[in-house]
């Protein structure tokens, strides 16, 4: 980190190689399509490189980097939503979220219907709920790591996970008419 703060690109490359998969899959979970996820995750690394001196000594790189990535994804979703709505009402959408059509089915590894339904249900979650699902399920992060990345305590993480999963259950039950998935 000291060499990174000094502007060493070689040192920064080590961080990029270590976190590129996390960055890509988190972005994919938040914005829903592969091209945007690649573009946003790379842009987040560029911004991190330019602002690396802001990382306080003794603090980890990833939680700080995650804030950059998340903010970029939220800005991207907000712009996309405005483009779709054709509206300039910035204040009217404090919680931007992609619409169902934005989550590309190509992003899902298995092509069976249930997996696609889960993906579409994740798309419909509120951003703060989608975020914890992405970090927990797509990146297998522990509660402690999630809390560190979100700058909150573990209680908030468990609470958000509870409501996120509740909502996911509801959405999947609705999709399935409360039957086939057993939910």
């Amino acid at each position: 980190m000291r060499r990174c703060r000094g502007g060493s690109r070689e040192a920064f490359e080590i961080f990029v190689n270590k976190y590129m998969k996390d960055a890509y899959f988190i972005a994919l979970g938040l914005v829903g399509n592969r091209e945007d996820a690649l573009d946003l995750s790379q842009e987040a690394f560029v911004r991190a490189y330019r602002n690396i001196k802001q990382v306080k000594p003794g603090r980890g790189f990833f939680p700080w980097f995650y804030q950059i990535l998340k903010n970029l994804c939220i800005s991207h979703l907000r712009k996309r939503k405005h483009r779709q709505a054709g509206s300039l009402d910035v204040e009217g959408c404090p919680e931007p979220a992609a619409s169902a059509d934005d989550f590309s089915p190509d992003a899902v590894a298995d092509k069976d219907e249930l997996k696609k339904e889960i993906w579409m249900a994740i798309d419909k979650l509120e951003p703060k709920h989608r975020e914890v699902i992405v970090l927990r399920h797509f990146r297998n992060m522990s509660y402690e790591q999630i809390a560190e990345a979100l700058f909150c305590n573990k209680g908030t993480v468990t609470s958000r996970l509870y409501y996120a999963r509740k909502r996911l259950q509801e959405l999947l039950s609705t999709e399935k008419g409360g039957g086939a998935s057993g939910l």
């Binding site: 490359e13 990029v16 190689n17 590129m20 998969k21 890509y24 899959f25 994919l28 979970g29 592969r34 690649l38 790379q42 690394f45 560029v46 490189y49 190509d106 992003a107 899902v108 590894a109 298995d110 249930l114 997996k115 889960i118 993906w119 699902i133 399920h137 797509f138 999963r165 996911l168 259950q169 999947l172 998935s181 057993g182 939910l183």
Partner: peptide, 26 residues
Amino acid sequence: KLKAITDEFSLAEPEDRIWQDYWGGV
């Protein structure tokens, strides 16, 4: 039940060249 379903869910891995060219892009 929900966890059993979501644990099986995974996102598609991009082609290897994406990771090989990733740092170059940055």
